[in-house]
Amino acid sequence: METNNSYIKHILFIWLLILAVLIIHTKGIYKFKFLEFNEASGHLQPLEMSYKEHNILGLKNIVYAVPFGPPFYHPNRKDKLDDSKTIRTYSISHAKYLIDNKIKKLDHFNIIDHYKGFNIFTNENGSKYFATLDYNISNLKFEYFKEYFPSLNIQELKKKIDKSF
């Protein structure tokens, strides 16, 4: 019984300690790193299903075209995404272009710059620049995963973005 009691005392002590840590952390007196857990954000959006035997999905800023058959692998699993021939790019229209033209390169997502809530990209040969709305930004005038402000260079594109406000 003595051991029993002493273990319960220890449990009480542990919970008082947890309580104290939570109060200090929540009040902002000291922020304990170990209490800062990751929490998911954003939604996996079905953008266009069944496009030429691909499902086109959007997640954060990336458009994924997943061929019929394999599942949608975790975005960090690059090898699996390559094995399953999942295309990664910046817009719906570009995903369709890659599917239509059976382009073998799979990863086309490469942000050049961020500007006023837009992500800036260029095409394969660098002849054209355009922007997509960043997933963290809410702007009713624009849709996510669509290309806007096609331009010949970044300066021109940024001017077009400025004008849109």
């Binding site: 857990f37 990751n38 929490e39 998911a40 996996l44 954060k60 975790h74």
Partner: peptide
Amino acid sequence: PPTEWIPYI
């Protein structure tokens, strides 16, 4: 917890 590693809600 899946919220730690699944990249979307």
